[in-house]
Design a protein around this nucleic acid. Structure first.
Length: 448
RNA sequence: GCGAGAUUAGCUCAGUUGGUUAGAGCGUCCGGUUGUGGUCCGGAAGGUCAUGGGUUCAAGCCCCAUAUCUCGCCCCA
């Protein structure tokens, strides 16, 4: 066997069958909760004009400065101009672009949309951090009310509950006010640290220059001690923001959603205003957010639309899967094979083809060994697939118009008429367990 | 982008102070007398020891570089 010559690019992974069932399970929960709440699904391109991200997310954020996956539409390397496109690092900017592009302000407001799919960041890979990863994402655009903030959080909460990982996570919530509030606060914070820089660790001294708000969630002990007597962001919030925050928390109480107010919660994207929140796993110590989001009232206007409020969240699906595995949650396996068809001899093989086909069309998960392997090997295969029943067809049976039906768990078998094989299997498995579907009842929502 | 640790069969790992032909378990495949699984027994396949250099009479083992993975930082999903 030759050594594998090719492998997945750095930070990307094959999603093998045993893990893929987690993804389909999560998607199912997402679709279910989305439909219940009237969200409609949207899909945007994997790549967009890079300016959408640069303008929307903020040119000086890490996501844009060092994590954007650039895409050039041109071949070759002779072209030294900047790439025109970038792979999406998240959904929100794309969905807002779509809202503006398709005149969705003409629809009844708010417009509630959700999306599921891969996003890309040119990061150094780490646990729960990959260059290609999947998110599910919810947005409410066009109407601002504290009740919508609470309802949006509720959708995420319900999905995490459905997946049985909600109790592992803690909802952190904060209000970071308007851009003006934050501007005033940053000035005050800088003033406060004048003369105290020497007590700050190197990293945080730099942050004071580049992104002072980040000091709030610094892990450095010295910094946290200094922050205790520093001005707080809360003191700089305008009355409207304070009242809004109070109302959001009231509504969360009303909905029975547990939360932990966190004045230090600051999200790194420029477009956030007012409400921000994250679901954390506190046990890991690190603030590894499974999902999070917030209000982005200035974003639509930044992307060329009219002044339109919005709020949304994104949840990392790989991180969700990790939580499920830690919690010992296993999605139901629908790939279970019901029947194995073993065969001996050319006549039998030929007959098996249509038998297998009939079983499958009836909704019985059926596989057959159509190679030339010995019966022993075929039976071993049947065992490995864990089938409940095996149908055996040899030369003799073909001649006599019969077939052997073996119950694998019981280890017993009997000969029945060939024509009764399909109905007999269906009866044994039970109508309810047949895998049949009518396309009209499932309008293309079961995949993807 | 910065720091640390890893890399031996499909998987999980042994491999002595450098010393002949590279080891196990699991998994895979094939057998264990006419056409019957799980347990049991036997056999086989599968490795340029991540890649490329270097030191040495001799390298899986020592040195350097590169790649990838893992764990931190930054940041985030």
């Amino acid at each position: 066997m030759a050594e594998a010559q090719f492998r997945t690019p750095k930070g990307t992974h094959d999603l093998l069958p045993e893990d893929h069932v987690f993804m389909t399970y999560i998607k199912k929960a997402v679709r279910h909760r989305a439909r219940q709440a009237g969200y409609k699904r949207i899909e945007t391109p994997l790549f967009e004009n890079r300016a959408i991200f640069e303008r929307g997310i903020g040119a000086h954020t890490d996501i844009v400065e060092k994590e954007l996956f650039m895409v050039s539409s041109k071949h070759g390397t002779d072209d030294d101009s900047q790439p025109e496109f970038a792979l999406r690092p998240e959904f929100t900017a794309s969905i807002c672009r779509s809202y503006v592009e398709h005149g969705m302000q003409q629809l009844p407001q708010p417009v509630e949309l959700y999306a599921i799919g891969p996003c890309f960041r040119h990061d150094r890979p780490q646990k729960g951090r990959y260059r290609q990863f999947n998110q599910f994402n919810f947005e409410i655009i066009g109407l601002k009310d504290a009740s919508l903030d609470a309802q949006l959080i509720q959708v995420l909460s319900r999905i995490l509950e459905d997946l049985k990982i909600l109790d592992r996570l803690c909802l952190q919530i904060n209000n970071i006010g308007t851009a003006e509030n934050r501007g005033a606060y940053v000035e005050a914070l800088k003033d406060y640290f004048i003369g105290k820089e020497r007590n700050l660790p190197d990293l945080d001294r730099k942050r004071l220059e580049t992104n002072p708000l980040r000091l709030l969630d610094s892990k450095e002990e010295d910094t946290q001690i200094l922050l205790k007597s520093a001005p707080t962001l809360e003191q700089f919030l305008n009355d409207e923001s304070k009242a809004y925050h109070e109302t959001v928390l009231e509504y969360l109480d009303e909905l029975g959603i547990a939360y932990q107010p966190n004045p230090g919660l600051v999200r790194g994207l420029d477009y956030y205003t007012q409400t921000v929140f994250e679901y954390w796993d506190e046990s890991t110590g690190a603030q590894n957010a499974v999902g999070g989001g917030g209000r982005y009232d200035p974003l639509i206007e930044l992307l060329g639309g009219s002044n339109t409020p919005g709020i949304g969240f994104a949840c990392g699906m790989e991180r969700t899967v990790w939580q499920m595995k830690q919690a010992g949650i296993k999605p139901p396996n629908k790939d279970q094979v019901d029947v194995f068809v073993a065969q001996l001899g050319p006549e039998a093989k030929k007959t098996c083809l249509s038998l297998i086909s009939q079983l499958r069309d009836s909704g019985v998960h059926t596989i057959g060994a159509l190679g030339e392997a010995s019966l022993k090997s075929q039976m071993r295969l049947a065992d490995k697939f864990g089938v409940r029943y095996t149908l055996l067809l040899g030369q003799m049976e073909v001649k006599e118009g019969v077939i052997i039906l073996r119950d694998m768990a019981a280890g017993k078998q009997k000969q029945i008429k060939f024509d009764t094989a399909v109905p007999a299997i269906i009866k044994l498995i039970g109508d309810k367990n047949l895998d049949t579907y009518m396309l009209k009842d499932h309008m293309g929502e079961e995949d993807g």
